[in-house]
Design a protein around this nucleic acid. Structure first.
Lengths: 234, 234
DNA sequence: GGCATGCTTCGCCGCTGCGCGGAGCGGCGC
DNA sequence: GCGCCGCTCCGCGCAGCGGCGAAGCATGCC
């Protein structure tokens, strides 16, 4: 456990409206430029630059320069998990009027780079319940059936294994049960998006939350049910 | 997902050193008076009072007056889970020099009112692995064997069922796997403490973190191994 | 009743830090 | 080369917040 001072320093980075807006936008998993983030946060370029410098210094975002743009993304999935958890806490301690994205968010969304919401939780339960995954040190490992099944779905297992962790739990604030994160969570999400089984409900627009909302296509529902007996009531 | 402003307001409550110190102290699960918290945070009584009022207003702590004392505790286990997760994030983004409690904290500690660390994670794995628990809506439910086994250990199942949630996961920052929270998690911890199977390594002292550290007694190790085949390398 | 204790309220002060505008720097395209 | 664009650095002003001490209120003890 860190010292209170170090803990507070990290929390303070999240506790400022402009930075919070930027981080929430980055939870969509896309890398965004400083200018986009400034517009999202509703502040000028210079203020945004200072905020992003502090977030990078604090290890919460990673920067990647490309030409005259600077692309920012969350530094790790720990950051994403903490943001999700704090978002859930905020909803539970400060029950506000229903937020426009609330219900749709609960069905299916991206949590940084992996699937969350009822879809993500159901997928996690199906993978563990059918023994495609089994508990391992620090998370989960794939079983033989799991490897075969995932490969048949088109998941890039080699890419998943290159991640720092193959598979681990990420707490889902809306379902209060874990969904799958780690390299495998990322690759499953990438596979579903690539094959059109799930798709973003908005690809552009100034609202950063809208881009995180996902919908399951009929094809996707069919394939997931066939492979994993996964059924969503929605 | 909350609005960025609401999210930031909650995070800002955590992002102030004095408040962070108070909240970390409350993670020990004991209710503390305003005066104790002021001393822990190293500030005067009036400043502490203002901070505690804001924490209560924000829904992070609950207050219970008893005579001329005001006892404060964390408002819910969601708060505890978020604090633990942010603590883990802080350690991972700002790897500091080893903190005196670091290693001992990883072995066994209290996370608000339930067991955490290697002990907590091993217990969770043992309960699920031996099918004393099975997945349910919003967390876990007990199986018939589980109820018999837990009752034989001396866990007060009736008290556990009175909680808002019987059993759910709480992410363990040091092990990166879930341990057991909810009413059952609380009662298991209470049972182990009551029977002397685990004990606090410090019951008094100004260091709030020291009180969270737990040790497993030889008797406790024996009983848990007999009942659940639970073995800790330590 | 009288006094000590625990906590809160109030008023004040000082500082941190957020935001802006302007200038500076580097990359890109005509 | 020149101009445009994205981003960063500098200096300024302002506001919010955290800290303290003194006073006020409630509770408990003798």
């Amino acid at each position: 456990m860190p010292t209170p001072a170090a803990f507070a320093a990290t929390a303070a980075l999240l506790g400022e409206p402009a930075r919070a807006a930027m981080l929430q936008a980055l939870l969509g998993g896309e890398a965004l430029t400083a200018g986009e983030l400034a517009r999202i946060a509703g502040i000028g370029a210079s203020a945004a630059s200072a905020h992003l410098a502090r977030l990078a210094e604090g290890g919460l975002v990673a920067v990647h320069r490309q030409g005259r743009h600077r692309y920012h993304r969350l530094a790790s999935e720990e950051v994403a998990a903490a943001l999700e958890m704090l978002g859930g806490l905020t909803l539970s301690v400060a029950p506000r009027r229903p937020w426009p994205h609330g219900e749709a968010f609960r069905a299916a969304r991206l949590c940084y780079d992996h699937l969350a919401g009822r879809l993500g939780v159901a997928l996690h339960a199906a993978l563990a319940g059918r023994a495609w995954l089994r508990p391992a040190e620090g998370g989960w490992e794939t079983s033989a059936e799991g490897e075969a099944g995932l490969a048949a779905l088109g998941v890039d297992l080699a890419a998943a294994r290159r991640a720092r962790r193959l598979a681990c739990d990420c707490m889902d604030w809306s379902e209060r049960r874990p969904h799958l994160a780690g390299g495998l969570g990322r690759e499953i999400a990438a596979c579903c998006l690539r094959r059109g089984w799930v798709y973003r409900m908005a690809t552009r627009g100034e609202d950063p939350l809208a881009r995180r909302r996902l919908a399951l296509s009929p094809e996707g529902a069919r394939r997931l049910e066939a492979a994993l007996d996964l059924r969503l009531e929605g």
